[in-house]
């Protein structure tokens, strides 16, 4: 009986010390991690938005899509006028796992850029969706000026990556979905921007 208490005590002490150390480290790294994640998303947003001069972090807007999910929309403005928006799109049709990326459009819904945020496609094959060659072909396209929004293999206008049709198709179709989301919510995204800005000014802590 005496031994079991000793064993329990030793293990309790070890785990308690570990918990204390981890609590401290977690507290210390919370801010840098949040900043790194934010910075990652901001860099992507800057890359896909048309020229802007506002602080995009303050001009974010949260829009509910048709599936009921809240989408974080970044808005680029120049001289107080909306020039475009960037919003995340998630495709569940990838070869392995979800593909998450950011689509940037101008006011009229013409694509300015696509940035892949997260994916777990096969290295060397599906992972090539990250390559500029693939991503850049969407630039300048909109629902109106594109007849068949599919990869070439499916009779569409977009070049698929050789050997990675599934990944290419997933991204292509999800972009189309994203454009639909923008069209549907265009009033909510582009309207009311100035009013929002007034409201956020006080509470903002981040500079962009």
């Amino acid at each position: 009986m005496k031994e079991i208490f000793r064993l329990t005590l030793v293990l309790t002490v070890i785990t308690a010390v570990s918990a204390g150390v981890l609590a401290f480290v977690s507290y210390q790294t919370e801010e840098p991690i949040r900043k790194a994640l934010q910075e990652e998303k901001m860099t992507a947003a800057r890359n896909v938005l048309p020229p802007f001069d506002n602080k995009i972090i303050e001009d974010r807007k949260f829009v509910v899509n048709s599936a009921g999910d809240t989408i974080e929309v970044f808005r680029g403005k120049k001289d107080g006028k909306i020039t475009g928006a960037a919003f995340p799109v998630i495709s569940a049709d990838g070869y392995s796992g979800d593909i998450e990326f950011l689509v940037g459009v101008n006011r009229d819904g013409v694509i300015q850029g696509v940035e892949i945020l997260k994916h777990s496609e096969t290295p060397g094959l599906g992972a090539k969706i990250q390559s500029g060659e693939f991503r850049d072909q969407f630039g300048g396209h909109s629902i109106d000026n594109t007849r068949v929004w599919e990869v070439k293999k499916d009779g569409g206008e977009f070049e698929q990556i050789t050997g990675a049709t599934i990944s290419s198709r997933a991204v292509t179709r999800a972009i189309r979905k994203g454009l639909n989301f923008y069209e549907t919510n265009i009033d909510e995204i582009t309207g009311g921007a100035d009013r929002l800005r007034e409201g956020v000014k006080q509470g903002s802590e981040e500079k962009d």
């Binding site: 480290v25 790294t29 840098p32 991690i33 900043k35 790194a36 994640l37 990652e40």
Partner: peptide, 8 residues
Amino acid sequence: LVMNGYFH
């Protein structure tokens, strides 16, 4: 944690 924060 440290890697996530500083070598993202």
